[in-house]
Design a protein around this nucleic acid. Structure first.
Lengths: 319, 319
DNA sequence: CCGCTTATTTTCAGCCTGAGTACAAGCGGA
DNA sequence: TCCGCTTGTACTCAGGCTGAAAATAAGCGG
């Protein structure tokens, strides 16, 4: 790896000017009791994070170190999300945030007390459609988005804004698309409907902005993680990272529903899972949960070998 | 954005230790005459790249500056690929590579002469399956991969290696999956079948390693870009960034085939394109290309608004 | 007009999907 | 004990999408 392309690196003295800090930030997700949760630390809501240092073997291992140190939570599945840089432009310092999505089972806290599990839907109340469209959309977001659209310079731009809002939130008979979580947040940010957008001191803060805000741009990072995970469960069997090794099919379904924020047709879900041979019966049945005892299953790890593209594809029920 | 989570940032003096250099690297893709090409610079094959600097407004704009400066090529569509860091561990310096995929139409070079368009398949000869499985797979890769598998410590590991090779390259009646370009390269690297893997001075270089190597880890970055693009054309209409504004359906199909490295059933491709209303007729027909004149089409930019998840889904012909 | 090339339309069977219905098995109270 | 409730499991069916192939159309050159 010694060679370097000619003419694309500057000399040492000049390079000094382009040094940056690299932050590693994690969206650690678990599902507990039908609610998808994210791990935060500190008084305010902050995602676990820390600087990338020389001592770290790699970006991922640096991330694991920080998260474990700050929260005591060991990480299982980890994947890179996105690298952000257009923030924190204070003086001559530049901070790059390399963000990760981590899936884990919510274990009881051992010692670290600064950690806290918060439901996704506290931060994004408009994202949970399991009991139908949440009222906040019609009561707050829709009117404010229309107001924002009407504030555009000319009529072409007004239409454009209305269309973007309609696509993102499923207005005007459009279908709700749970994977657009990030676009929705960015739209609300642009329209200054979320609190973070009014932190620059220039804008007037709107009363009762929906959803619990987070430190810096962490809510945006969380939205990125949610969008990625909602997309990923459809083509890779990652849900199993979030549930116990042995589970019932309904448990599995509820977990997927929690992540997707919408309900799934039960028979179709079972059919899909079984025909993909994602799971195998353990032979036992669950302790009662009110009705007929359910068969217990475990994940067939072999599927990871068989076809690298097998996934869950989600037979999502239509609104 | 002023607030910061407590306890996750170190003081200024300490932070100095974790400064890094951030490099921006681009995989610039164009398709010319049925071959997908990547833009390189310099004597050896290097992707355009340069350090992220204070003057840059954002990562993306920094990237655009470097590419245009080094190659004279203006960029259209740009998306982030991945951030790498586990390389270049020389001394106390740490370099992070933030890599991007850019799509463009291959214009004639204006002035910058250092630039060069090279076919993907010069770097990855095993990736082009448009004329059936390329001979290099059976003649070179398969035997060497088997040799590598047999070199594993115990029989479990031998099986594991064979299975991984079979999945990646479609051995033993498995289907070829064009999206696994990155896994394939990484497998060949691990098995030391590509030249880059033997650059550390410790290993013996194998004779006649397949595919043209690139500087540093640039071939890995290119493989990442190829894999991403092959996946993306199936669910987002990005192909249109690579072809002229007006085109025939066969031209469109050949472009997709060039990227995917495999052939597509013609009637099914047309049906898919039309039923998704991705294009509209211009009313004109193409100048002759030997047979019946073909209708000319243009991309319906409106689809970008209608459904953000519309894409091409590729009816790929089976081997 | 024939043979060649490429473009475009149709057909058809199989699979997957969404949606709904029916049946099974446990529990607890009337 | 029977009934109603809850949850689990099996089956059906129509529509849409897909892969594959055949048929038809339109230009060119001899």
């Amino acid at each position: 790896m010694g060679e370097q392309p000619k003419g694309i690196r500057k000399g040492r003295a000049e390079r000094k000017a382009s040094d940056v800090k690299a932050d590693l930030t994690a969206v650690v997700v678990a599902v507990n009791n039908r609610d998808p949760c994210v791990l935060t630390i500190g008084q305010e809501d902050a995602l676990p994070s820390g600087p990338f240092e020389l001592a770290h073997r790699s970006l991922q291992s640096g991330l694991r170190v920080w998260v474990e140190q700050q929260t005591g939570q060991p990480l299982g599945y980890v994947e890179q999300l996105y690298t952000f840089a257009d923030r924190d432009r204070i003086g001559t310092e530049r901070v790059i945030s390399i963000t990760y999505l981590a899936l884990t089972r919510e274990e009881v806290a051992t010692s670290s007390s600064r950690r806290r599990w918060g439901s996704w839907y506290d931060y994004f109340p408009w994202e949970d459609h399991r009991s139908g469209t949440p009222p906040v959309i019609g009561d707050v977001l829709r009117p404010r988005l229309i107001e924002w659209a009407d504030g555009a310079a000319d009529s072409a731009r007004r239409l454009e804004r209305r269309r973007r809002a309609a696509v993102a939130f499923g207005f005007d008979d459009r279908a709700w698309n749970e994977e657009l979580a990030l676009q929705r947040y960015e739209l609300l940010f642009e329209a200054r409907i979320v609190e973070e957008a009014t932190r620059d001191g220039h804008s007037t803060a709107l009363a009762s902005v929906p959803g619990r805000p987070m430190v810096a741009d962490h809510r945006r990072i969380l939205a990125t993680g949610i969008a990625r995970l909602r997309s990923k469960i459809k083509y890779r069997p990652v849900v199993f990272e979030l549930i116990p090794p042995v589970f019932t099919l309904l448990q599995l379904q509820r977990t997927v529903e929690a992540l997707a924020g919408r309900l799934i047709n039960k028979p179709n879900f079972r059919r899909l899972i079984e025909q993909q041979e994602l799971v195998e019966e353990t032979g036992e049945t669950s302790v009662d949960t009110g009705g007929r005892p359910a068969k217990l299953y475990r994940f067939r790890h072999a599927v990871l070998d068989e076809t690298p593209m097998a996934g869950t594809k989600l037979p999502l029920a239509r609104a």
